[in-house]
């Protein structure tokens, strides 16, 4: 059976965890130069920077490694007036991309969510065989898993076992 789904790790990227109260989101958006998403699972992209809303007061911001100042500096400038918590977590996570026609099915082997309900361009925090991950559907057949570094071998191991099973037609 032909199986054309690819699992690959992505190069390092800048990642920030942003927590702030609702009344300060306007100031945050203004400083960043784009509107922070307002519903959970919504992903907003502005140039090279993305913002994903994970919880009622929590966002994950990403950018290329050498452009981290674009997030850090404008938010630091408004800190006095709009209190927030911005924590750099770039080295905490590794991203894994799963792309191909069977991507959804491959991820379903270890993710309890109904992935059909995850729309393109949205991302959620969920579990992948007891490992907490951020799962983003970048395209219909392309997903990204952000996994804490120490769990990467476990997740990659499961994905490679599942890939082998699919290849064998199990």
């Amino acid at each position: 059976m032909a199986f054309n789904t690819i699992v690959e790790t992505l190069p390092a990227m800048g990642r920030f965890s942003l927590r702030c109260k609702r009344e300060n989101t306007v100031a945050m958006s203004k400083a960043l130069g784009f509107e922070l998403p307002s519903t959970i699972s919504e992903l907003v992209r502005s140039g090279n920077v993305t913002a994903l809303k994970l919880g009622p007061d929590e966002w994950m911001l990403t950018c290329p490694m050498d452009e981290r100042a674009k997030i850090k500096e404008p938010l630091a400038a408004v800190y006095a007036d709009a209190v927030h918590s911005l924590t750099e977590v770039s080295s905490r996570e590794v991203s894994i991309r799963v792309s191909g026609p069977e991507a959804e099915e491959l991820l379903s082997t270890s993710c309890p969510r109904n992935l059909r309900e995850l729309t393109v361009g949205c991302g959620v925090r969920t579990v992948f065989d007891s490992v907490q991950v951020i799962l983003t559907r970048e395209e219909q057949n392309q997903f990204r898993l952000d996994v804490w570094r120490s769990f990467v071998p476990h997740v990659m191991g499961l994905l490679s076992v599942a890939t082998k099973e699919f290849e064998c037609g199990l």
Binding site: P112, R113, E117, V127
Partner: peptide, 18 residues
């Protein structure tokens, strides 16, 4: 598995996330 509606995410999701 229980399916639980999270009032913040406004979605019915599997027990394993909770």
């Amino acid at each position: 598995m229980l399916l639980i509606h999270c009032p913040y995410c406004k979605e019915k999701l599997p027990e394993l996330e909770f």
